[in-house]
Design a protein around this nucleic acid. Structure first.
Length: 470
RNA sequence: GCUCCCUUCGUCUAGCGGUUAGGACACCGGCCUCUCACGCCGGUAACAGGAGUUCGAUUCUCCUAGGGAGCGCCA
């Protein structure tokens, strides 16, 4: 039987880190086994579901390259099917209408809590024989077995047993006939022939209910694998309080999909001491059964480390393209300046994110930004004016404006004049970038271009002389 | 409150009865060096507690503590 997994988010919010990891594990499990991955949107909550969320989820999945074989299916388009199954259940006396009001249910729960017992529906309508009260549209409840226990072997956690006495008769349809979650998942997983349900462990308590519905429907329940939660830095479940929620936010912040995926893979799963996994290795090595049992804390610093790694590793094409987009989005005119790829290759050793890279690269695409006061004060002194000018003149005559010859000129200048490398390098750096920090000097000059470099050096010289004399 | 689940350095983790308890991020030193980084070398740091089982427990069992999840006409 071919393995079929699915990712079934509800579009009531954005796709966040926890969801992405569940999606990744589902995708990997399908790929690893040569199976299929299905995308399904659980939008039965029409009040909270939004198209914007659907779009963000799908876009996030695409950005990460978690492509699906089937779907996306929308539950709101399957209502006739759910109604059909509900009627089937009703006919076979496996479900029943319940006329209890929300208020009555609420007071019942409060009484139960006060009595120290688990709040759950007391089944008062299960064996109701009285005629339906007029004017009340009932909900439909599933007849959960009264005795026995549900046992299942979680792929990750092993055997889990829950007594039916812990379970009440859950509502499967609202008064208006719209179905509810625990019911639609079952119908969908059944109809879509899902073999392996991989989801967050906040669903373990729902699993026995769903298995009971599968049984009532005479269908074989899938295998279940409950992955542990991801916690925020405060040890609490990851939520909107922990910074960037949407995966797309990570894209905006300059993270690479391969970094995010690699990070998430290692959160709860490992392969010996290996930290870096290519997409092929992930698919090849991933094993659902060896996923950890315990929740793990999200650590942004390690994500950053992986991002640094992927910024400078592997094929650069996509990353350079993305970098170019971000430079343009920053309002920079890429026509006037060095090739984006050249800048990328120079900056990739020193940027943690693409956003940081953009910030550090503005200097190549804008007019001289002016001097950082502290840097200028420290390095642009009158004593350097003369050597700076001499050096400028040598560079001015350089016919081949590439990093290597630029560096040769500097080396020769230092050798001939006896000026220490460090004594002249920083003044040049400040002169051309305005700050004391930049990539290697020869590379910086090269990227800036000869004309621009000469202009800035002249400007700096004039600035030094006017400052010292004035 | 009830039910279910979890517990190795600060964090992510390796371990699958006998190890100086390993790796990674972060942190702290050092080297490299034209700045910032990269890189390299080194260091600090953990088996929640208690009973068993066993010649021997991080590893197996139970209890306690702590943490998480669920108990919706949300998914």
């Amino acid at each position: 039987m071919t393995i079929r997994t699915r990712f079934a988010p509800s579009p009531t919010g954005y796709l966040h880190i926890g969801g992405v990891r569940t999606a990744l594990f589902s995708w990997l499990h399908a790929c690893h086994n040569g199976g299929q991955f299905v995308m399904r949107i659980e939008d039965t909550d029409r009040l909270r579901s939004t198209q914007a969320s659907v779009d963000a989820i799908l876009e996030g999945m695409q950005w990460l390259g978690l492509d699906w074989d089937e779907g996306p299916f929308y539950q709101t388009q399957r209502f006739p099917r759910y109604t059909e199954v509900i009627n089937e259940l009703l006919e076979h006396d496996l479900a029943y209408p319940c006329y209890c009001s929300r208020e009555a249910l609420e007071t019942m729960r409060e009484q139960q809590k006060a009595a120290g017992i688990k709040p759950r529906y007391d089944r008062r309508c299960r064996d109701r024989t009285a005629p339906p009260p007029p004017g009340v549209e009932p909900v439909i409840r599933f007849k959960n077995p009264l005795e026995g226990a549900v046992e299942f072997d979680d792929v990750i956690r092993g055997r889990i047993v829950i007594s039916n006495q812990e379970l009440d008769d859950l509502i499967i349809a609202r008064p208006d006939g719209t179905p509810t979650y625990n019911f639609t998942v079952v119908v969908d997983d059944m109809d879509m022939a899902i073999t392996d349900v991989i989801r967050g462990d906040d669903h373990v308590n729902n699993t026995p209910r769903q298995i009971n519905i599968f049984n009532a429907l005479g269908a074989q329940a899938p295998r279940y694998a409950h992955v542990p939660m991801i916690l925020g830095g405060d040890g609490k479940r990851l939520s909107k309080r922990h910074g960037a929620v949407s995966v797309l936010e990570y894209r905006e912040q300059g993270f690479l999909p391969e970094a995010l995926l690699n990070y998430l893979l290692r959160l709860g799963w490992s392969h010996g001491d290996q930290e870096i996994f290519s997409r092929e290795e992930m698919v090849d090595l991933f094993d659902l059964g060896t996923v950890n049992h315990s929740a793990s804390t999200f650590n942004a610093q390690k994500l950053v480390w992986l991002n640094e790694h992927y910024i400078k590793t592997g094929d650069l094409t996509d990353k350079v393209a993305r970098f170019g987009e971000m430079l343009a989005a920053d309002g920079l005119n890429l026509e006037h300046g060095p090739a984006v790829r050249d800048v990328y290759e120079v900056q990739m050793e020193r940027a943690k994110t693409l956003v940081e890279m953009v910030e550090k690269s503005r200097v190549f695409y804008t007019p001289f930004p002016g001097f950082d006061e502290k840097a200028a004060h420290k390095y642009l002194k009158l004593v350097v004016a003369e050597p700076l000018e001499a050096l400028r003149n040598r560079w001015q005559r350089l016919p081949d404006w590439r990093a290597e010859p630029i560096h040769d000129v500097l080396k020769q200048f230092v050798a001939e004049t006896g000026i220490k490398f460090g004594k002249i390098a920083q003044p040049v750096r400040v002169a051309i970038t305005g700050t004391a920090v930049s990539p290697a000097l020869d590379k910086t000059l090269w990227l800036l271009g000869q004309e621009q470099s000469m202009q800035r050096l002249s400007h700096a010289l004039a600035w030094i002389r006017s400052r010292e004399s004035g």
